[in-house]
Nucleic acid binder design. Structure first.
Lengths: 236, 236
DNA sequence: GAGTGGTCTAGACCACTTC
DNA sequence: AAGTGGTCTAGACCACTCT
């Protein structure tokens, strides 16, 4: 984090959260900021635009840049939905029960989702995950063995993402997600302790490495009362 | 749409969808593109970065910029979740049944969500919405009467967003959304024709105008089998 | 008209991969 | 070493609001 625009982004962000810039207040204009931070206007614009995309600021041409009032979606969450479940529950006690962990030949759907050649092998991992001993989500994950080699049971019992990023040294670039509601299936009821009238929120996800390879296709089925997904959309 | 970066963005986007740039192919480097489009490298970078955020391209420093293979989340949807229900169902026959349409004094929750002063009046609108005669979603919407004045029953029966943008000339800037699964409530079952074991996907939404004012707080409860929410997250 | 953000440039220099 | 994307600049000019 030595890029100037990231430093400025962090600094302004901190000033918003610490209320040095208060809700509905106009922050200094871009020319002033570029003098304060000793940088060009374009660099200020870049930092400020990140905060606009994040939903913390809004701009009015000809008028100025203003702090948005806090809403549940911009101040609570990190607004980065990219990483695994363990990381999203930082500070809480996460545990996992491994229900299935094997290598199988990819079927038609998995081959299509992971963009594999025919007849490739993939890890199939089914885990129930608990926060403070309470079941939260049932995950069914597929990863190609030639992209993510050497997954051990110990990784599956802990954090697979930790293994991928720290031990294999790979970088996750992006994730495409689809969120739905669904009736509970048999496995959901069993592991998430749900009855027939208690639904799940399903997140289907395809995750990319920074070299463009797909390394994960998964469906996570969350207890309806332990899940929410937050999103900010800004007009371009 | 006369900004150069938007024109270039559209043009590259079209080349991706028309397969002139094929999946996994490397597109021309930024220097070449800036010559082709007679513009600076920064302008190319801006257009390309929009496509990266949209999940259509990915970049590798030192290597090049590549077309992602299509996944359900990047090629099907417009990736703009900003506008109302009518617009998201373009081309289909949308109808509405107005269940409630009145002006009420905002209660504590609505006052907080819409960031109102105490005791302000808001429109309360409950509508069931149908696509091809089939019920899709039950919407409960609150709008402050001093921000969006003059809503008539005819607007509520059609598209309120059309009224706001076309007739009032206001511009929608952003929306903060929270998505959950939930059990069906009495009204859901009645208007969405659900049984106790059929859940809903709830989208709670706060929508901003481009002057920073909040003009809508709503909860939309969708039939579980007629809803999905797609999202692309890219590491910064 | 003064002030604000929006677009765009031409080029320098850096970080990374290997086209 | 050559090629590619990443950062940053200093400034020009435009579009918009109204401090």
């Amino acid at each position: 984090m030595k890029e100037k625009y990231k430093i400025i982004y962090e600094d302004i962000r901190n000033k918003i959260f610490s209320k040095e810039y208060e809700p509905n207040e106009r922050i200094p204009d871009e020319k002033t900021l570029s003098q304060n931070y000793s940088c060009s206007k374009m660099t200020i614009k870049r930092a400020v635009d990140m905060l606009v995309l994040e939903g913390l600021l809004h701009k009015r041409r000809g008028s100025g840049t203003y702090v948005k009032e806090p809403t549940s979606s911009n101040f609570t969450s990190t607004s980065r939905h990219l990483f695994g479940f363990s990381r999203s529950q930082a500070g809480k006690k996460v545990s996992s029960k491994v229900i299935e962990f094997l290598v199988v030949q990819a079927d038609k759907i998995i081959t299509e989702k992971l963009k594999l050649e025919d007849d490739e092998f993939v890890y199939k991992i089914i885990r129930a995950r608990y926060v403070n001993e309470r079941p939260h989500v049932l995950e069914e994950t597929y990863m190609p063995i030639h992209v993510i080699p050497g997954i051990k049971r110990s990784h599956v019992e802990g954090s697979i993402y930790h293994y991928i990023e720290e031990e294999l040294g790979l970088t996750i670039q992006s994730a495409h997600k689809t969120i739905r509601a669904d009736k509970p299936k048999k496995l959901d009821k069993e592991y998430l302790l749900l009855t027939d009238i208690e639904p799940v929120a399903e997140v289907e996800q395809i995750v990319f490495l920074d070299d463009g390879r797909i390394f994960e296709y998964s469906k996570s089925r969350h207890r309806y009362d332990e899940f929410k997904f937050e999103s900010v959309s800004v007009k371009l």
